[in-house]
Nucleic acid binder design. Structure first.
Lengths: 138, 138
DNA sequence: TTCTTGACTTAGACATTGTCCAATGTAGGA
DNA sequence: TCCTACATTGGACAATGTCTAAGTCAAGAA
């Protein structure tokens, strides 16, 4: 994660306590917090950090390609720090848990030319849904 | 679309002017309106219809499996009457236009067993993004 | 080190989308 | 025609996100 901060500094990012804390909160595997969850966790370390700054910082990280924005259900967006390894999401329909998963075929090649309607297709997201083990065995 | 109304009546749906208007608005191909857009169009035909009723009716149609809910971008959900033909969506990153498309391989089978983490996977959504012809040629 | 400045942060107002509730209206069966 | 359970309404409320003006500070310059 510290290499992330170095990378961003190299791009002219001014390093502040608030940005450092947000980056720290997003460190780890299978992390998919909402902006409010990031704010709550950031507040534990830096009580005076504001909501606006969390939103700003998340937006910057997304623009810089360091974090992915995931819209799972029309509720709050989630932020995924695993931006440098192509992956998909598997979501529990009951509790909302999200896991990163990896598929075999390339979904882009599954869309035939005549089905592209002249679009310059550049991106594809695949999301699986089902019941997770914890929710399946009550 | 009238067969839709008949089908719903057969399931005990009470047929009201409001519900009929919402169903009429959702008739057609490549229709992906937000709730507010549905409300605006419904208001043209039935000026006193309320926002709450539009939300209620859309929710019922989704529960009954007659309409699909599409969360494209974390903004407003969209409602897709093409619920009986399996398809995916192709979205213009610039103007937001949505087209229904059909792919060749089954994306469910692309997720290997060890990547399912014990989930009972039942559903998969595939969304393509790119620039549509109108936005590509300014 | 201290100074300077433009970028950053803050609090809170505001916008959008969606949900809920009590009061009122009505579709469809008896 | 009359009943009544279900549907509709308007408005308050909730959740999420955006914007702005004023104050603050990181980092390069001297």
């Amino acid at each position: 994660m510290s290499d992330l901060l170095e990378r961003l500094r190299g791009r002219g990012w001014r390093l502040t306590a608030q940005r450092r804390v947000v980056a720290e909160v997003l460190d780890g595997d299978h992390v998919h917090y909402t902006a409010d969850e990031v704010h709550a966790r950031a507040t534990d370390r830096l009580p005076e950090i504001s909501r606006a700054t969390v939103y700003n910082t998340l937006g910057e990280l997304v623009s810089l390609g360091e974090v992915l924005e995931v819209s799972t259900d029309g509720r709050a967006k989630r932020y995924d720090p695993n931006a440098h390894h192509d992956h998909q999401h598997l979501i529990c329909s009951r509790c909302g848990t999200i896991r990163d998963v990896h598929i075999q075929s390339d979904p882009l090649s599954a869309l035939p030319e005549p089905e592209r309607y002249g679009f310059q297709v550049s991106e594809v997201t695949v999301t699986y849904r089902g019941i997770c083990p914890s929710c399946a065995t009550p």
